[in-house]
Amino acid sequence: MAEILQVNNLFKSFGRKQVLKDFNMSLEEGKVYGLLGKNGEGKTTLIRMVMGIIPIDKGKIHYKGKKIKFNHPCYKKEVGYIPEESIFFGWMTINELMSFNSSFYPKWNAHKAKEYLDRFDLDGKIRIKNLSRGMKLKLGLIVALAAEPELLILDDPTSGMDVPTRHDFLKGLIQEILEQGTTILFSSHLVHELEGIIDHLGILHSGKLILEENFEQVKNKVKKVHLVFDGSVPEGIDIEGILTKQTDGNKCDLGIYPWNDEVKTNLETLHPTKMDVESMTLEEIFVHFVS
C-alpha cells in the first residue's frame, strides 16, 4: 500500500522548548491513522507543519512522494483540514464562506456542500459569528469535506461536538469518507473515540512517536498482566517490555509491550501463584505508554 504522507526526522522548537524531536511518521493510503498524545505534546504543531501554516525547523515531509516545501501549497488542494477550533471570518455568512472557500479548490463540490449543510442542519444565511462552537465545528467539517480531499487531517475536532453529532461523525461520516478512498489522520486526546475507527496508531510523547503500529497488532502486543505471589512481590522484576508496574502487597500489575512467549516464560520463572493476561483498551494502552 502506498504511503500518502511521510514525515522524516522532524524537529520543531518554540523558543527554548523543543516540541518535536526527530519525529518520524508515515500514513498509508486509505487508512485511518490515530495520533494520540497528551495536551501540549505537539500534535497540533505537527499538523500545522503538514498544512504549511508554520515552517519546519528541520526535517522533511513528503506528500505522495513529493517533498512539501513551506509556502508551496499545491498539495493542499488535495488535503482537507479540520482544526481543533474552526475559526473563520466572523462577518461572513455560511454561504459566503462556502463561496469564498470554493475558489481555492478545483474539486469543490457545491452539491455535496449543500447536502452536508442540510445534514448538519445549518442555515446558509446565518453569520458565522452567530454560530455556536459545535455549529462552527460542523461548518469546518463541511468546508473540508466539500473539497473532496484525498487526505483529511482532523486535529481533535470532536472535543466541542455534542453527543449526537459526535456519534454521527465517528460512526457514520468517517465510514463514508473512507469509502471514498480518503486517508484520514485523526489526532485526538479523547482516546476512547478512536477505538473502532483507526487502522494505525501513533502515540506522541516527548517529541517523538513512542509507538507506531497497526492497531490490531498493538492490541495483540500490549497486555495487562496481573500477578499474585505468595509472600511479597519479588524485587527487581527485570523483564524486557515492561511499560508500567504497580505493586500492592503481594500483587503486581504490569503493562507489557510487546507481549510474546518469551515474556510469558520469563514471568513464569518468577513463580507467581496467579497470572492473568488481559488485553487493554486504547485508553489503557495510551496511559501505559505515556506514564
Partner: peptide, 20 residues
C-alpha cells in the same frame, strides 16, 4: 486585522494558495 481578530489566519494560510 480580521485575520488576527478572528484568528482566521489559521484557516487562510491552510488554503492552497501561496502567502505572497
Amino acid at each position: 486585522y480580521t485575520e488576527f481578530k478572528d484568528n482566521a489566519w489559521v484557516y487562510l494560510f491552510s488554503r492552497p494558495v501561496k502567502k505572497e
